[in-house]
Structures are given as C-alpha cells and as structure tokens.
Lab assay of single mutants.
Amino acid sequence: NQASVVANQLIPINTALTLAMMRSEVVTPVGIPAEDIPRLVSMQVNRAVPLGTTLMPDMVKGYA
C-alpha cells in the first residue's frame, strides 16, 4: 500500500510546509505520495489543513 502525506498538526492557510508538519501514513483515499515530502518543504497550503488530514495535490500551491 502506498503511504500518503498526512498533516501532523493544524496547518493554517498560506503556511509554508516544514518536515515537522507532515508524516507518512497509509490512508484511503490516497493523497500526495510520502516520497514527495522533501519536495513539499517550503510549499504553501492554500487552505487550513486540520491535524490528521491527508494532503491532496490541490491543497498545496504549485504542487499539482
């Protein structure tokens, strides 16, 4: 099963992502692949992401 990127904390809108904000977890539906975590660092979210939410490509500016 593919691990996805999950929010490790509440991430406010327009926040630049850091490693501490993300974790890898096997979830359904599948979100951004966990191997993309290094690429996500310093990218901004375009909405508030609650703790435990799977990051989807449309939630991260410049990812999709």
Rank of each mutant, 00 (worst) to 15 (best):
N1F: 15
Q2E: 15
Q2L: 12
A3T: 11
A3D: 14
S4A: 04
S4Q: 02
S4E: 01
V5H: 00
V5C: 04
V5I: 07
V5F: 02
V6L: 09
V6M: 09
V6S: 03
V6W: 02
A7K: 00
A7R: 01
A7M: 05
N8T: 10
N8R: 11
N8Y: 12
Q9D: 11
Q9E: 15
Q9H: 10
L10N: 13
L10K: 06
L10R: 06
L10A: 08
I11S: 00
I11M: 06
I11E: 01
I11P: 01
P12A: 08
P12T: 09
P12M: 11
P12R: 10
P12L: 07
I13K: 09
I13T: 14
I13L: 15
N14H: 13
N14M: 12
N14Y: 12
N14W: 11
T15K: 04
T15Y: 15
T15P: 01
A16H: 07
A16I: 12
L17I: 11
L17G: 01
T18S: 09
T18P: 00
T18K: 07
T18V: 09
T18W: 03
L19A: 08
L19K: 06
A20W: 15
M21K: 04
M21E: 02
M22Y: 02
M22N: 00
M22T: 02
M22R: 00
R23W: 04
R23V: 05
S24Q: 08
E25S: 08
E25H: 05
V26W: 05
V26K: 03
V27I: 10
V27L: 06
V27D: 02
V27H: 03
T28C: 05
T28V: 12
T28P: 02
T28W: 04
P29Y: 10
P29M: 07
V30W: 11
V30L: 11
V30H: 12
G31V: 02
G31N: 00
G31Q: 02
G31P: 01
I32R: 00
I32M: 04
I32C: 03
I32A: 02
P33T: 10
P33A: 08
A34W: 10
A34F: 08
E35H: 06
D36W: 06
D36I: 05
D36N: 15
I37C: 03
I37E: 03
I37V: 13
I37A: 11
I37K: 05
I37N: 02
I37G: 06
I37L: 10
I37P: 01
P38L: 13
P38W: 12
R39L: 09
R39M: 15
L40N: 01
L40W: 02
L40R: 00
L40Y: 02
L40E: 00
V41T: 10
V41P: 03
V41D: 03
V41K: 11
S42H: 10
M43Q: 07
M43E: 05
M43F: 12
M43V: 04
M43W: 12
M43R: 08
M43H: 08
Q44C: 09
Q44K: 11
V45N: 03
V45K: 00
V45M: 08
N46S: 12
N46A: 10
N46P: 03
R47D: 05
R47L: 11
A48P: 06
A48Q: 13
A48Y: 13
P50Y: 13
P50G: 04
P50T: 06
L51P: 12
L51I: 10
L51V: 08
L51E: 09
G52N: 14
G52T: 03
G52M: 10
T53R: 09
T53W: 15
T53M: 12
T53S: 09
T53Y: 13
T53V: 10
T54V: 09
T54W: 02
L55V: 08
L55K: 00
L55Y: 00
L55M: 09
L55I: 15
M56Q: 11
M56H: 06
M56F: 10
P57K: 09
P57Q: 10
P57W: 12
D58S: 12
D58H: 07
D58V: 09
D58W: 14
M59G: 03
M59K: 02
M59C: 05
V60D: 01
V60Y: 01
V60F: 07
K61E: 10
K61G: 07
K61F: 08
G62A: 15
G62W: 12
G62K: 08
G62Q: 11
Y63M: 05
Y63P: 04
Y63V: 04
Y63R: 03
Y63Q: 04
A64D: 14
A64K: 10
A64L: 11
A64N: 13
